[in-house]
Amino acid sequence: MAKKQEESLLGYDPLAWMNEEPQGEEVSAAQEQEQVASATEHSSNAQVTQENQLKVVLEAVQNIQNVANLREEIISKLENSLGAIEIDASAVNSIDTATLQLFVALKKETDRLERVLVFDFPSERFLEAANLIGVSKLLELDKSASGFF
């Protein structure tokens, strides 16, 4: 909660996060440097961005060949952030059981740590695969805006 401002009846500003967003072209040199460093750091299969939450954007094909990199990336980010974890699954055309097992383990870990895990826009292929092996409910995919991509 934010500190109550003098003479204000609003104790907490729910929109304050909007001030922290980078404003399009107005990126300072320091921010630019940070972005370059961040982009260099993430060279594995998943694109990971740090906003208020940890965000992981899955690639079209998620399988045994790239699951190890994805795991390392997620673990590293889990250890270095405290916010919610968002996994953008909108682009997934193909996903194997190894990756889904990783997400099951991740879900159990986030539950244990009382962290929030959200799958954003899971594609129909992602949903089909999760349904097939019976993990949709565990991953709470029914709460997502699903089946759109």
Partner: peptide
Amino acid sequence: LMSTGGAKRS
């Protein structure tokens, strides 16, 4: 309540 077909309806 549906989990698929969103893209088609959209």
